[in-house]
Design a protein around this nucleic acid. Sequence first.
RNA 1: GGCGGAGUAGCCAAGUGGUAAGGCAGAGCUCUGCAAAAGCUCUAUGCGUCGGUUCGAUUCCGACCUCCGCCUCCA
Length: 470
Amino acid sequence: MALRLFNTLSRSVQEFVPLDPQGRKVGLYCCGPTVYDFGHIGNFRTFVFADLVRRYLEFRGFEVTHVMNITDVEDKIIRRVGEAGTTLAEYTGRYEQAFLEDSETLGLRAPHHRPRATEHIGPIIGLIRKLEKRGFAYVADGSVYFSIERYRAAGNRYGKLLNLNLDELRTGERVANDEYAKESVADFALWKARVPEDGEVFWPSPWGEGRPGWHIECSAMSMKLLGESFDLHLGGEDLVFPHHEDEIAQSEGGCGHPADRPFVKYWLHGAHLLVEGKKMSKSLGNFFTLRDLLDKGFTGREIRHLLLTAYYRESFNFTLDGLTGARSALARIDECTGKLRAVAVGAAAGPAPALVDRFTAAMDDDLNVSAAWAAVFDWVRDQNRRFAEESITPAEAAAELAAWERIDSVLGIGGEAEEAVPADILALAEARQAARKAKDFARADTVRDELKARGWTIEDTPKGPRVKRL
RNA sequence: GGCGGAGUAGCCAAGUGGUAAGGCAGAGCUCUGCAAAAGCUCUAUGCGUCGGUUCGAUUCCGACCUCCGCCUCCA
């Protein structure tokens, strides 16, 4: 039994074997946000996916170094900085902070490194110089470009991730004015010469003042932090081309990776999502930032759960109804784990194996999280039956709880211990119970309404009343 | 036009060459003073359409229909 993942490089599901000879350490890089605005739900599908990969690798015993870059210099950012009349650092700092908060809301484990592009201009320039030295870069009008033709002429393949017919690229319409100097339309910028619109956003370089191209930061920072060859590189499916293709060309072009130690061993790409059945767009009114959803009263764990119900390689239809459904589904799990906590006494000898085994089998199969949830909900039903029959012992409950906690280290939706009930609320509940015993139901109902007004609800169970947070 | 992905119940969504996981919603039941909550049970003769291969197809093959993505802004 081994973890198998779909590798975009081979377009097939492959067993995951780390580069580390000990088979223990894993380098994971995920293309992070461009901090020009609040992150939307589509962005976060990708980041939740990356978090799932990271957590599952850790669950499987790998020692993961997780890197996620922050793109804090880029065309759109520069335009907005100009419009806002502020500085680059002030502008991007605001949205980077928002991104960190949103990540926490969704229960994303913090990456070990969050490198910013603007803080790695040195390594970026260094990589471009290597490319120059090896003859794959050329200067035109103060900008530096990558020559795909020379790269291919040296025996390299451009188009590893995608079947591309370079001669048939539909190009021309969207070539920016400042890129007319390129030798070939498919070439891409490594370093962009400073233009007046850039304002104060520029750095000195051997080619004059300017700023990095879009792709180069990921190559430079990932190799700096994870080594020239590392295990996993993740991103949204739209990044396959050109971003990731260009990363490969730059990195392998600059460093001359041997065939058996490529820049990246496994490329994983998460599919996009639709919202209410349509591509997200502001004009359709189905464009949601994470904050929009929180404003509607949904919680981070509900959103996380919904984003984790579907297989990462297929597009997913995100709906508000689905979020409501997520709330109910989580309540079912919380109810079950709450009962387990109430019954469990003493340390478990170990997690009950059935749930963990079924979960692991599902996840090993290219992160089949849907099947994993099926295992969870079947388990919930089984536990509920045991509660109904009162056939579960405290030790068994502790073992089941340990199993849940084990797999929740991956799912990350929690199920915290229930809030302690304050004394005055408890007193009210007891008063109601006394009234019921005395058949004074009018008074009992009044007390129940009082509790409800204070945010608590009473469940009359066969074993007596139970007070719960509304 | 090129390349790729997908169509499974009211909604979301797994899966398999041998007779359809799971969640939400809905229904019935249990419990209850009533209610709520919770729990249990049930809910697709069917997997876009039409052909083909096969003892057998939702699963493989072909055609068609529809939707989506990428083809230098994109998670």
